[in-house]
Amino acid sequence: MDPAVVTVAATAATTLVAAMTTDAWGHVKGGCARLLGLAGPAQGAGREPEREPERAWERQLEQARATVVAARERGDAQGERAVVDLLAARLAAVLEANAHRADEVEELLRQVLAGNAAADGQIDALTQALGRRGNTVYNQWVDNGGGGAQGPGATVTVHHHHHVPGVPGPS
């Protein structure tokens, strides 16, 4: 995973958890729910995904907030840290999966991290990293001369079924 993604996701998760017990919570929660909504629907209380991804993510963020508040009341720093780590992982996955939407991701991150001056440079680095990958298509030419295009993060497995004499094989 790109270091810029990891850094911004960790900053956003830490900012989000810090805001959970402040007046900024509503604003930060809304921006974060929109950002997480780029990943698609969250799983709600039922078995089916929610039709409105942003609302489902808002409910999940409220559950995370309840966990953080309870952890703080118990003096459980590890419980709070677990929420930060989970949110950072989810945010990183969304950032990675949405490299093709770098402008939208940047705008949502700036909403979530408003007032965090240190985050500006991190967001700029992330936008550059996502922009490079969002405009890249990887081509894989296979033995029979055909080609296939794969996007960022895709995996291609090629099985070689023949060897041309005089041409070295893979090392």
Results as ranks from 00 to 15, higher is better:
G121E: 07
D85S: 13
V158Q: 06
D143W: 03
H161R: 13
D124Q: 08
A18D: 12
T15R: 14
G121D: 12
E58P: 04
L36Q: 07
N98G: 00
A70D: 10
V105F: 01
A12P: 08
R51I: 14
G169K: 14
D124L: 00
H100D: 06
M20T: 15
A97C: 02
A92F: 05
G75Y: 03
A102K: 04
L113G: 05
E62A: 01
R90W: 02
A12Y: 01
R47S: 14
L36S: 02
L113R: 04
N135R: 15
R47C: 03
V158T: 14
L130G: 08
N98S: 11
D23F: 02
P41S: 15
A129T: 14
I123G: 00
G145D: 06
Q140E: 02
Q78E: 12
G131A: 09
G46T: 00
A4N: 04
L95D: 06
G75Q: 02
A77D: 15
D23G: 15
G31C: 14
R132Q: 00
T157H: 08
G37C: 09
G131V: 13
R72I: 07
R81W: 04
A19Q: 11
H100K: 05
D103E: 10
T155Q: 01
P49A: 13
D2A: 06
W57V: 11
R110P: 02
V68W: 10
N139H: 11
L35C: 10
R132I: 04
D85W: 03
M20S: 13
L109Q: 01
N144W: 04
T7P: 00
N139E: 13
E73N: 12
A42W: 01
A45N: 04
T7D: 13
A56L: 12
W141K: 15
E104K: 07
G121A: 14
L16C: 11
Q111I: 09
G151S: 08
R90F: 09
A4K: 08
L109H: 00
N139M: 02
V68C: 09
A56K: 11
G75E: 03
V112G: 02
A45R: 14
H162N: 04
L130M: 02
T136V: 04
A82S: 14
V83M: 09
T67D: 12
G79S: 12
D124S: 10
V68I: 01
A70F: 00
A129R: 11
G134R: 03
